[in-house]
């Protein structure tokens, strides 16, 4: 487009004045929104991350209201902050807020480059948009909002100009619901009865027909880390959870030696040595 046309257009356009109240609210809300967005990215805890996002969305909602879009502002707060972010928090709590991402960098230098390129793209967009919008004058805002007709006009355009995209979003919602069910639902109707499970145990589908033995209970200790003894005095290794055995295996080794009679006990009535049984094997 020619330069003269540009000049003419700019001469005709009065650059809109920003009122003091709007400026104050902007300079309060904008740092909050920006801080919330940065906090969302850098927070280690997922719940903190979500709360920072709530802060950003609330600030944006108020900004929309300041810019004479009350409906959009309230929708932003009610739908995004109120409904969607709360759902987010529910999911985080259900999944477990301790579950954290792996911090291992798979590609070397990926983060550095991602940061450089991301900041570069953001800088490009911000300078471009800022340069383009500084001389823009709002058009048609007063007529659209005359006498509080903001909502009515949105309703009108939803049922006229944007009727089809509006209706089409229903397809999107149905797909999302269907997808959640496909990925989340497992058919439990064919659960085995107790009798079938018992039969299966004795048919050998499980490792052993009976449940695992409990840990030992003695006068000196009833910890889950103490193994139970079998009737012949030998240790039942299954009676201790695999995790515990791994951590306290040294203690268990001396216990085994004691019980096996390798270390002579002070008491003549100590447990019978299991050596004979070992020898039988």
């Amino acid at each position: 487009m020619s330069n003269s046309a540009m000049l003419l257009a700019q001469a005709g356009a009065e650059v809109a004045k920003v009122s003091t109240g709007e400026a104050i609210s902007f300079w309060i809300l904008a740092p909050l929104a920006l801080g919330g967005a940065l906090g969302m990215i850098f927070a280690r805890n997922a719940v903190h991350s979500a709360m920072f996002l709530v802060l950003t969305m609330l600030s944006l909602g108020v900004m929309y209201m300041v810019q004479q879009a009350p409906f959009l502002g309230f929708v932003q707060i009610i739908v995004y902050t109120g409904a969607i972010m709360m759902l987010f928090l529910f999911v985080l709590m259900l999944v477990g807020r301790d579950s954290s991402d792996s911090v291992v960098e798979v590609l070397r230098g990926q983060r550095v480059w991602a940061a450089i390129l991301g900041i570069g793209l953001a800088g490009l967009l911000v300078t471009g948009v800022a340069e383009a919008l500084t001389s823009v004058r709002p058009v048609g805002l007063a007529e659209q909002n005359a006498g509080g007709a903001n909502v009515a006009n949105i309703g009108r355009s939803v049922f006229t100009d944007y009727l089809f995209p509006f209706e089409l979003t229903s397809a999107l919602l149905i797909t999302a619901a269907l997808g959640a069910m496909v990925l989340g639902y497992t058919d439990k109707s064919k659960r085995r009865t107790q009798r079938e499970t018992a039969d299966a145990r004795f048919r050998g589908e499980h490792d052993r027909p009976s449940p695992l033995p409990g840990p030992g209970v003695y006068a000196t200790a009833n910890s889950v880390a103490v193994p139970a003894l079998l009737p012949d005095g030998s240790i039942a290794p299954e009676s201790v959870s695999a995790i515990i055995e791994a951590t306290a295996s040294r203690e268990l080794a001396t216990d085994i030696e004691t019980v096996a009679g390798a270390i002579p006990g002070p008491d003549a009535h100590a447990l019978k040595p299991a050596a004979a049984k070992e020898g039988d094997k």
């Binding site: 487009m1 046309a5 356009a13 948009v129 383009a132």
Partner: peptide, 11 residues
């Protein structure tokens, strides 16, 4: 034929 900045258009 618009007076708006081309940055928006091409961005």
């Amino acid at each position: 034929g618009s007076a708006a900045s081309d940055t928006l258009l091409f961005g």
